[in-house]
């Protein structure tokens, strides 16, 4: 390990960032799968570019810009869905692609700033700096701590909102907490796999974990582990085969999902 750290500091930072992101996208992704919110996560991630533009405009850390914008989009989505005037998938389609286009246009207007668009869209994990790492670990620990503290109410609301409400769970506050967690995790994960592929890190490890889990907790933890293995695999392939790191991580996760599906097909008696 020592030699790797000395020789390739950037690889160590990439691995550290990737593992931290996997540790939060795993459990949170389990909730995304349980709540059937895969496209919701996608829409949030797509609005991230608008957040980067906001960050550049206001000269604040892009993390904060992205978290603010994604949280706003999350709240708008929830409010629009509650009005029930349009189907949920239509609303998601409008906001997901609308905000992405808006972000692309906004970034192109940034005067005198050369924006690494590809880095934002597909991730730039090998360029993770020390500040990024600090942000990712700060966000990661807050997310894990929140999940631990609010696990039961989060799970109860996920299983059945009305039942949870009658049982005294403050449903709206729990919902808001979940949106907040989604927003900061999307912001943290963007650096690793990019806006376009953030939703993959939420959904694929959790889906792969389902087959082997007997409880919600097992599935959440296993999703984190599978995500971590995918990060190692993706970075390894990027190092050896010189493939783009972010997409390689998602491909590795996809392979793990394929393996989990295959193993369940082989195991099933019917």
């Amino acid at each position: 390990m020592d030699t790797i750290i000395n020789m390739d500091d950037f690889l160590f930072r990439a691995l550290a960032a990737g593992l931290a992101v996997a540790a939060v996208t795993g459990p949170l992704g389990a909730f995304v799968v349980w709540r059937r919110m895969a496209f919701f996560g996608d829409a949030l991630a797509h609005s991230g570019l608008l957040g980067i533009a906001l960050g550049l405009l206001l000269h604040i850390n892009p993390f904060i810009g992205v978290a603010i914008v994604t949280l706003c989009v999350a709240i708008v989505l929830v409010l629009l869905r509650r009005k029930r005037e349009l189907a949920a998938d239509t609303i998601l389609g409008i906001l997901s692609h609308g905000t992405l286009a808006l972000g692309l246009v906004a970034v192109s207007f940034m005067p005198g700033v050369r924006v690494d668009l590809m880095g934002f869209l597909f991730g730039d994990i090998l360029a993770v700096g020390t500040t990024d790492l600090i942000w990712i670990y700060a966000v990661g620990s807050v997310v894990i701590a929140s999940l631990l503290v609010f696990w039961r109410p989060l799970l109860a609301v996920t299983v059945h909102e009305d039942l949870a409400a009658v049982e005294g769970v403050p449903v709206q506050r729990v919902e808001l907490l979940f949106m907040l967690l989604m927003a900061v995790v999307v912001a943290a994960a963007m650096k690793v796999v990019g806006i376009v592929l953030v939703a993959a890190m939420l959904v694929i490890p959790a889906a792969a974990a389902r087959r082997f889990s007997r409880s919600a907790e097992q599935m959440a933890i296993l999703a984190g582990v599978i995500g971590a293995v995918a990060v190692c695999g993706g970075l390894g392939s990027s190092w050896i085969l010189d493939t783009p790191a972010g997409p390689s991580i998602v491909v590795a996760a996809l392979l793990l999902f394929g393996l989990s599906s295959a193993s369940s097909v082989l195991k099933a008696p019917r």
């Binding site: 799968v33 299983v159 039942l163 007997r214 409880s215 599935m219």
Partner: peptide, 22 residues
């Protein structure tokens, strides 16, 4: 409640489901 449909992707034992209220 009426017509409760659970997402099969959420693994839960009966014991856990029953105790979810606290």
């Amino acid at each position: 409640p009426q017509r409760l449909v659970l997402n099969p992707n959420l693994p839960l034992t009966t014991r856990r489901f029953v105790g979810l209220s606290g």
